[in-house]
Computed example of a mutant assay.
Amino acid sequence: MKHARLTIALGLAALTAACGKKAETPVAVETNQAAPAAAMSGDMGNMAMAPAAPASIMAKGHGTVTAIDKAAGTITLNHGPIPEAKWPAMTMAFKAASAITDAAKVGDKVDFDVTLVGSAGEVTAIQKKP
């Protein structure tokens, strides 16, 4: 019993002594790993982050050609809802290659493929409906 009390007393003395000591800083070993954040210096709060490129969405639509601006390279379509973009039916202008603006006429009912980036889109294919 005396032995157990002595062990407990020595253990408590060692813990009490350890509470007053500062933790030692481990010696760095050269590795191929990145330095921990605490070892980095400088103000990274002002570091500019590159914006993520907006994702493009491929979608299909159905509508009527309401205007063509060959100089601006746009085609305006009164189209039905486009679920892939969560767009309701509306009339809007899209970018379009000259082959598309040359092939379409105002009043044509069409099916079209569009690539959407953000709130803008480009018609990449168009087919007249009979």
Results as ranks from 00 to 15, higher is better:
residue 57 I to S: 06
residue 1 M to T: 12
residue 68 I to Y: 02
residue 22 K to V: 08
residue 7 T to L: 13
residue 53 A to R: 11
residue 79 H to Q: 03
residue 27 V to C: 05
residue 67 A to L: 07
residue 106 V to N: 04
residue 119 S to F: 15
residue 82 I to P: 02
residue 72 A to M: 02
residue 99 A to S: 14
residue 35 A to T: 12
residue 14 A to L: 08
residue 103 A to Q: 14
residue 65 V to Q: 02
residue 30 E to M: 01
residue 89 A to K: 06
residue 17 A to F: 09
residue 120 A to M: 15
residue 68 I to V: 09
residue 2 K to R: 10
residue 96 A to S: 10
residue 108 D to V: 02
residue 44 M to E: 14
residue 36 P to D: 06
residue 43 D to E: 03
residue 122 E to Q: 15
residue 63 G to A: 09
residue 71 A to L: 06
residue 56 S to H: 06
residue 95 K to M: 12
residue 82 I to T: 01
residue 123 V to T: 04
residue 62 H to E: 11
residue 106 V to A: 04
residue 62 H to V: 08
residue 69 D to G: 04
residue 56 S to C: 05
residue 100 I to F: 05
residue 97 A to D: 11
residue 47 M to W: 14
residue 12 L to R: 10
residue 123 V to L: 01
residue 105 K to Q: 12
residue 51 P to R: 08
residue 87 W to G: 06
residue 55 A to W: 10
residue 26 P to N: 13
residue 112 F to T: 00
residue 30 E to P: 00
residue 14 A to G: 06
residue 125 A to C: 14
residue 109 K to I: 11
residue 47 M to R: 14
residue 47 M to P: 08
residue 25 T to P: 11
residue 106 V to R: 00
residue 11 G to P: 08
residue 113 D to R: 01
residue 6 L to S: 13
residue 2 K to D: 14
residue 88 P to A: 07
residue 27 V to D: 11
residue 56 S to V: 09
residue 112 F to M: 04
residue 61 G to M: 05
residue 12 L to N: 11
residue 57 I to P: 09
residue 33 Q to A: 12
residue 12 L to P: 06
residue 11 G to A: 15
residue 37 A to I: 10
residue 126 I to H: 00
residue 112 F to E: 01
residue 10 L to V: 14
residue 31 T to A: 03
residue 89 A to L: 07
residue 124 T to L: 13
residue 81 P to N: 00
residue 93 A to R: 03
residue 39 A to E: 14
residue 54 P to Q: 05
residue 44 M to C: 10
residue 114 V to W: 06
residue 73 G to F: 08
residue 74 T to K: 00
